[in-house]
């Protein structure tokens, strides 16, 4: 057994076995935020979600939003650009902390 099983994604709703009211509120919010055309299209939302899935490294989400991106008409070029946005943001978030390092270096007289 692995901790992450692909088929477990289909059991997501079972988390509402206890305190179902909370899970219902979550799903209502989640569906309203991700699964509708609004100021952003469903495709744009799927690509944002795909980028975040990689940023947070969630295997369930990567599977779900790879499919959701395809099923909203996105192509592999667009999907790959989306995950590069996530990856470059992650790199930038690491590197910008270099300013903290520089501050300490300066304070140390280096």
């Amino acid at each position: 057994m692995n901790y992450y099983e692909s088929k477990d994604l289909g059991r997501f709703a079972e988390v509402g076995k206890f305190k179902p009211d909370l899970m219902k509120k979550f799903f209502d919010y989640y569906n309203a935020a991700t699964n509708t055309d609004g100021a952003l299209s469903k495709r744009e939302k799927a690509l944002i979600a795909l980028a975040i899935s990689h940023f947070k490294q969630c295997p369930y989400c990567i599977e779900a939003y790879t499919t959701a991106s395809l099923e909203s008409g996105a192509n592999p070029d667009q999907m790959t650009e989306a995950i590069h946005v996530a990856a470059s943001m992650a790199a930038g978030m690491n590197l910008v902390h270099g300013v903290q390092m520089l501050n300490i270096l300066e304070k140390s007289g280096v």
Binding site: S41, K42, R43, T67, L70, E71, S72, G73
Partner: peptide, 14 residues
């Protein structure tokens, strides 16, 4: 038609 095992996107948007 989709290039793989997924459903088509909305006809209008495509």
């Amino acid at each position: 038609n989709p290039a793989g095992a997924f459903l088509p996107a909305s006809q209008q948007s495509l």
